[in-house]
Amino acid sequence: MRQQMVLGTFIFGLSRGFAYDTLDRGSTGGWVSLDIIAGKPKSSQVGQGLETLTLGGKAVRAKGMQRLDELRALQDLRAPLPLVDGLGRNWGLWTIKSVNEKQAGVIDDGTAMAIGWSLVLEEFVNA
């Protein structure tokens, strides 16, 4: 079974009907500017910040709604989770910062025909 990524026990991929189509990765270098009254700001190194990953995609119907509930259940654990990509690369531990969804085409029983979703993860480092 092919998969894009696994977060804890959650599998992203077409085989589960829940694949992401965007991945945004952010990192900072740890530089800040300190204002100086009589000159240009001074650059100072305060240490590298934590990386963030934002995954986004589209899901459909009750299956998509169920997968988002599964992600929220992982978020409710309030624990760092291992992240491994489809090539077997271990990305380390990550926390779920937010799970967002936008439902469209909601029918009379409350099922969304289309769901746009995003998941924001933050690197977990406690060493």
Rank of each mutant, 00 (worst) to 15 (best):
D76K: 15
F12A: 10
G56L: 02
L7M: 07
L55T: 05
R16E: 15
Q45V: 05
G13Y: 06
L83S: 01
K102E: 13
R2E: 15
G64W: 06
D35A: 12
L93S: 02
T28E: 11
V60T: 12
R72Y: 06
V99D: 04
F124P: 03
N126A: 13
T9S: 09
Y20F: 12
V106G: 04
Q75K: 15
A73N: 10
F18S: 02
P41Q: 02
G47F: 02
N90G: 01
D85G: 00
L93F: 01
Y20A: 02
T54M: 11
W91H: 12
L119M: 04
W91L: 06
S118P: 02
G26R: 15
T9C: 06
V32Q: 09
D24V: 15
A79N: 11
P41L: 02
V60D: 11
G88Y: 11
S27H: 08
D109E: 14
I11H: 12
R2V: 15
F18V: 05
V106H: 03
L81F: 02
L93P: 01
L68K: 04
E101G: 06
S15A: 14
T9M: 04
K63H: 10
L121Q: 07
D108I: 15
T95S: 13
R67G: 09
G13E: 12
L93K: 05
L77V: 04
T54D: 09
F124Y: 14
A112Q: 04
G26Y: 10
L83F: 05
